[in-house]
């Protein structure tokens, strides 16, 4: 079967599985993203303080601290005056959590900016916008380095002054100011300038989370890859399409697990596939035929370089 034309994207999945099943993970993600907003808003709006603070730093039920690793990293670089036991514990809890379930689960299940950039991608497809600026996907690693360096150089949490994710979330909880312009800017950038520009290439938070999630346990698996009919729909919907080929095509004898830390565990490939190739699962087992294939980590690097 040939590549599915864009206008028919997702139709085969709906035909095979029904609309609900073909949107299952997307609906769950929206539920999670909006639900987290609601949890944060319950405090200020209804006086129910399940979670206090914002995505940068919060307290669950008045006791469990949560601290975003990128904030913690900047605190370390910026002069350690805020490194308290609570801060260390908060960063540790968040890091361990995402290290297990997939670092970039933050990006696709929690981060509010995801709804904006998903919307931009959808609109880009609907409007048939083709052109896209090209920068390398590892730019975000450089961005992460820049975030740490600016904190080091200025002795402050410099990136938090401009971090669009923080501005967005804090804006809704505490007042936006001109922050909405930053959100609109990201939307327009992704829509008009660059496909998957912000989340897929630039955001240093995503870069850090993909490093945290390199060895995560929860993974998307392409166990049904034998029945792949090359419709290419998963590549179209995947926000990090470079993560799919090793698991799906096994060019160098890779196992069926998507191992790249860049995978956001969004489940879009699972939803869109009419052949039910993909599913959520664990990192292990990941063997095809014993004796074939090189160690997975090394292949990751080769593919990235290519």
């Amino acid at each position: 079967m040939a590549t599915t034309p864009l206008k028919d994207l997702g139709k085969s999945a709906i035909a095979e599985k029904g609309w609900l099943k073909a949107h299952q993970w997307q609906l769950l993600r929206r539920f999670s993203q909006i639900g987290i907003f609601v949890l944060f808003l319950l405090g200020p709006l209804a006086g129910v303080w399940l979670i206090n603070g914002n995505l940068a730093n919060s307290t669950v039920l008045g006791t469990v601290p949560l601290l975003d690793p990128i904030v913690f990293l900047q605190m370390l670089a910026g002069g350690i005056s805020g490194i308290t036991l609570t801060a260390v514990l908060g960063a540790l809890i968040v890091t361990v959590f995402y290290a297990l379930i997939g670092g970039r689960v933050f990006c696709s299940w929690v981060c509010p900016m995801n709804m904006v950039t998903d919307f931009a991608r959808m609109l880009r497809r609907r409007l048939g916008l083709k052109g896209s600026a090209k920068i390398k996907a590892d730019t975000r690693l450089w961005m992460l380095a820049a975030v740490v360096l600016t904190a080091l150089a200025t002795g402050t949490l410099a990136y938090e002054l401009v971090n669009p994710v923080a501005i967005f979330h804090r804006g809704i909880l505490f007042g936006f100011g001109f922050g909405w312009a930053v959100v609109v800017g990201i939307f327009l950038f992704d829509l008009l300038v660059m496909k998957d520009g912000w989340c897929g290439h630039i955001c240093p938070m995503g870069a850090l989370y993909s490093q945290i999630g390199r060895m995560s346990v929860v993974r998307v698996r392409a166990d049904g890859r034998a029945s792949c009919d090359d419709c290419m729909e998963c590549y179209e919907v995947c926000p990090e399409k470079q993560v799919i080929p090793p698991a799906l095509k096994s060019a160098r004898g890779e196992g069926p697990v998507i191992l790249s830390g860049d995978c956001t565990n969004c489940g879009a490939c699972i939803d869109v596939c009419g052949q039910e190739v993909f599913s959520f699962g664990l990192r292990m087992p990941n063997q095809v035929k014993p004796g074939r294939g090189k160690p997975a980590r090394k292949q990751d690097k080769i593919l990235k370089a290519a």
């Binding site: 405090g43 200020p44 975003d68 805020g82 949490l157 804090r170």
Partner: peptide
């Protein structure tokens, strides 16, 4: 804290505000 230390320690979480 004094402003330079404050800017390195405050995570902008807003819990003092609440």
């Amino acid at each position: 804290l004094k402003e330079s230390d404050f800017l390195a320690a405050c995570t902008r979480c807003g819990m003092c505000v609440r």
